[in-house]
Design a protein around this nucleic acid. Sequence first.
DNA 1: CTATTTAGTTGATATAGTCAACTTTATAGA
DNA 2: TCTATAAAGTTGACTATATCAACTAAATAG
Lengths: 173, 173
Amino acid sequence: MSSLLLKDSSQEPAPQPSSLSETLHRLTHTYKSRLRETIKEKQIPLPITHIRALKGISRNPACTAHSIAQRMQRDKAQITRVLNELLKDGLIAKIDNPKDRRSQLLQLTSSGELIMAQLNAVEQQITAQMTCNLSEQDVAAFIRISNSINDNLSDQTLQSQPDNQSASTDPQV
Amino acid sequence: MSSLLLKDSSQEPAPQPSSLSETLHRLTHTYKSRLRETIKEKQIPLPITHIRALKGISRNPACTAHSIAQRMQRDKAQITRVLNELLKDGLIAKIDNPKDRRSQLLQLTSSGELIMAQLNAVEQQITAQMTCNLSEQDVAAFIRISNSINDNLSDQTLQSQPDNQSASTDPQV
DNA sequence: CTATTTAGTTGATATAGTCAACTTTATAGA
DNA sequence: TCTATAAAGTTGACTATATCAACTAAATAG
């Protein structure tokens, strides 16, 4: 018995999905697993959501919890908790927002910057791995089509009933 | 106040990500949200993982918990629990596997078949929505590239061959 | 000034994913 | 055959992700 593979080799290894939905489920699961695995190898003890928030803060000057939540399209409650853990870990700091006393501006601490540098390296590494046998055209096409699909899914949520404020009652095509 | 939008309209709505990782995170989140929303509208009270398992059972004759886990690339513990809930809900049945007394064969009950018919309609509907402004070539390209990325991410787990010759090692667009 | 909205917090809950220990059965090999 | 190992499935514990509703405090429209 050749035990070349880590996974069960006695069954067919992994059927290639041809449906859009299965393709999506499988891709994202593999991607997230790989990401988790890699950051674990690099001894960066942060969940993926925290990493994305950190990245958002590092790339956006004068961001707030609200703007991070918008950018990540996540619930503000979830973001609050993530930010508080990053704060507790000393990776970010909240400073008073002179323009709005309800909110605070977020910025990386120096250890936050250090972690971010590592995370950027990890992201580059994984991106290189994902695209190693793809042409630049393919990568560009993938991003374009993905964004297009994303827009298609989002738009339907918003429009559909211009003058209806409840908006959740449409039978949805 | 015009409540045309569900989300905050006072800020820029949603910046288009140009990195592969952000694109992936955003796409899958939107997709899953839309899927959850749609099955909720259709009064199908099942989590997404359960739906995928059900679909796997419906499309695979003589499948077992193990083969479902493999196909979905999920932990067998997770699959066990999902299948037990589907069983409890009367959507599937386990029958003794004459070939192997450790496992049982899975099949849909008649209510499982009914739900599956609805779910197939939902999937078709969402797929149509996702691809409404895409050419067939784009959809095919998306599936091909996604599967390729998935393979790239999976393979590295097994062989860990760091040669990385890859003519086009562009460091993340 | 007052109504409403917005930013953020908190609690509760559901879903998802992972790991390890365990039982039962299958199977390879001495 | 006997035995060691592997495989199928279960269970417990735990972490991570997502969502909703109620809430406080500050901003703002009228």
